[in-house]
Computed example of a mutant assay.
Amino acid sequence: MNILYFDDKCIVCNGFAKFISRIDRKDAVRFASVDELKEVMPKGFDTVAYYSDDLYIHSDAVIEVVADASGISAVRLSKIMPACLRTAIYKWVARNRHRFTGNKTCTTDQIDSEVKKKMISS
């Protein structure tokens, strides 16, 4: 089972989950709160992780879930960019995501209905 763990309280992360749900034509991706991983992830990790054949974090998670959901494996070619650069960009966006949205947060009832249908946890 492919699972995208995302910060269900973050507008940016919810938007990303909604995007993945829309491009997931084969219904291959399920969703869960990143809080489900708090015991196994580094302290303070609160953005997205993706589990398919392995557990991916940061930019690798974004690349892998987009490739799996869209069915376009060529998306993985973006891994040609050095991981340190991809991760730095990802972490900058993740660090500033709340500022981009004016510190607005989501509640459970604001999660997209299509994403909610595919949630496997709270």
Rank of each mutant, 00 (worst) to 15 (best):
M1W: 02
N2D: 03
I3F: 03
D7L: 01
D7H: 00
K9W: 11
K9M: 13
G15M: 10
F16I: 15
F19R: 11
I20R: 07
S21N: 15
S21P: 11
R25W: 15
K26D: 06
D27G: 11
R30A: 11
S33Y: 10
V34D: 04
V34I: 15
D35Q: 07
K38C: 09
K38T: 09
E39I: 14
P42H: 02
F45T: 02
Y50T: 06
Y51N: 15
S52Y: 11
D53Y: 00
L55Q: 01
I57G: 08
H58Q: 14
H58D: 15
S59L: 08
D60Q: 14
D60S: 12
V62P: 06
V62E: 08
I63R: 08
E64T: 04
V65W: 00
V66S: 05
S70G: 10
I72V: 07
I72G: 01
A74Q: 15
A74G: 11
V75C: 10
S78N: 15
S78G: 13
C84V: 10
A88H: 05
A88D: 05
K91R: 10
V93P: 01
A94W: 00
R95N: 12
N96E: 12
N96G: 08
N96P: 11
R97K: 08
R99M: 08
R99V: 06
F100D: 00
F100S: 02
T101F: 09
T101Q: 13
G102R: 01
K104A: 14
C106H: 15
I111Q: 02
D112W: 05
S113G: 08
K117M: 06
M119P: 05
